[in-house]
Computed example of a mutant assay.
Amino acid sequence: MTTNAISSPVPSTMSDRIVGLDLARSLAIMGMFWAHMTAYEPAGFFDGWLAQVPDGRSAITFALLAGVSVALMTGRQNPYVGERMYTARLRIVGRALVLFLAGGLLSSLGTSVVIILGFYGFWLLLALPFTHLSVRTLVWVAGVGAFAGPFLLILTKSAMAAGGLFVGSDPNSAFMTVMITGTYPGLQYGVFVIAGLAIGRCDMLAQARQLRLIAGGLVLMVGGYGLAYVATGGENTWPQHMPWDPLTSLLARDAAPRSLEGPLGWVFPSLGEFFSAEPHSATILETVGSGGFAITLLGVCLLIGSAVRYVLYPLAAMGSMPLTSYCGHVVAIYFFPDLEQSLSLTGFFVVLLTTMVFASIWKAMFSRGPLEWVAWRSGLLYSR
């Protein structure tokens, strides 16, 4: 650490950032805006398919980018060692604490938005034990986790349902929530974080690497979604209903049973549900297919990042301050409840354009967004 760290944001340009990463973040943020502020009713097949793309995939892209961020903060292609790695990890812990605080404050607003920040902070912490591993090892861990994680989720949730167990809302239940029962369970989303860490350890600016990401992501997409389409007859690959959950299935006494119950009350997904690729279903095929989608999106953004640096400056500026942009849209929903799940797209575009204009003006004057600066300073203070 240097002793003359600045105490306020400083003027900067986009030249010292990987623009492709900012573009990917901005698209993930836009997907969150769409999911939380629109109840758009599509008029045809194409716009119906397009309107459902952000569902679940925005959060997965966030998780993938969380892993990339951890790689950038711990040495990129040459991981730090010794005291330098120890300091970098402490800075990540400091940033995670800010995310926990911001997530708690947003939750207190009482909107129906499922706040992702607490999960994001946990993802950062989850990646710390893996920061010293090689790219090859990280790829193997992510690959095995893509199958083992969702399968463990099914077994664990089924066991909890069979035993009549539940997860409360107090701090004692925090680990179970972020790992198993929450909207973004660590047993699944940790796979995307580890995959992002592996990507961040590579030379992301090399065009050959970017093309590999696109090709590999497309293979995973076709494999995951294609198998789900064949196995389910295309009924729930791009769904508009809630996914299977054994706890809900067992406890919903007035609902017709959807899953198979064994002699001990165990609840398992039916064959069609097991092979589903529904958003938030936490199945193997959703993990593979949606993970491939996020990797492809990242590869495309990295590939075109330099070429569209100035053309898409407002979009990249929004992506350079994801914490500020995300918190801003939740606060906007709090003050203007009509923005939430609106049948009109007006509110979505107003919030999106306002965020891009604010980010563009701020980025022209300062190197970090306002909340990003707070997280950065927290990391510095915590590492001393």
Rank of each mutant, 00 (worst) to 15 (best):
G186C: 03
R57T: 02
V193D: 00
C202G: 03
S320C: 11
V178G: 04
Y310M: 08
T181W: 08
V267F: 01
F45L: 11
W34E: 10
D16V: 07
H280A: 05
V70E: 00
T111W: 08
L353F: 12
F268S: 14
F358I: 05
L117T: 15
L264P: 05
S108V: 08
I214P: 02
M30Q: 01
A162W: 04
A5W: 02
T13S: 05
V351W: 01
S26R: 06
R76L: 00
V219F: 03
I304H: 08
I154N: 09
D203F: 03
G233L: 11
Q210C: 07
Q207M: 09
I361R: 14
G217M: 03
M37P: 01
D338H: 10
S26A: 15
R95K: 08
W376N: 12
M204K: 00
F349E: 01
W123H: 12
P257W: 01
K157L: 15
Y229D: 06
T237W: 04
S259M: 00
V70M: 02
G217C: 12
P246F: 04
L124K: 04
G163I: 13
E372S: 07
F62M: 09
G121S: 13
G291Q: 03
F119I: 02
V300G: 10
A307Q: 15
V330Q: 04
I361L: 15
G347D: 06
A142I: 00
G31V: 09
A316H: 14
T324I: 13
R136T: 04
L155N: 09
L250R: 06
S69F: 10
G223D: 04
G347E: 01
A208H: 04
L323R: 06
T287C: 12
P246G: 03
Q77Y: 01
I284D: 05
T232G: 13
I115F: 07
M356I: 04
M242G: 02
G110L: 13
S276W: 01
C202D: 00
L211A: 05
T74F: 03
F33H: 04
Y184H: 07
R89K: 15
V230S: 05
L27S: 11
W49E: 00
F130I: 09
Y229H: 00
L353Y: 03
A231E: 04
V300T: 02
S360H: 11
T61F: 07
E83Q: 09
W238A: 12
G217D: 15
P314H: 09
R95L: 04
S383A: 14
A174S: 08
I180T: 12
G265S: 00
G110W: 10
Y189Q: 11
S290F: 03
F166D: 09
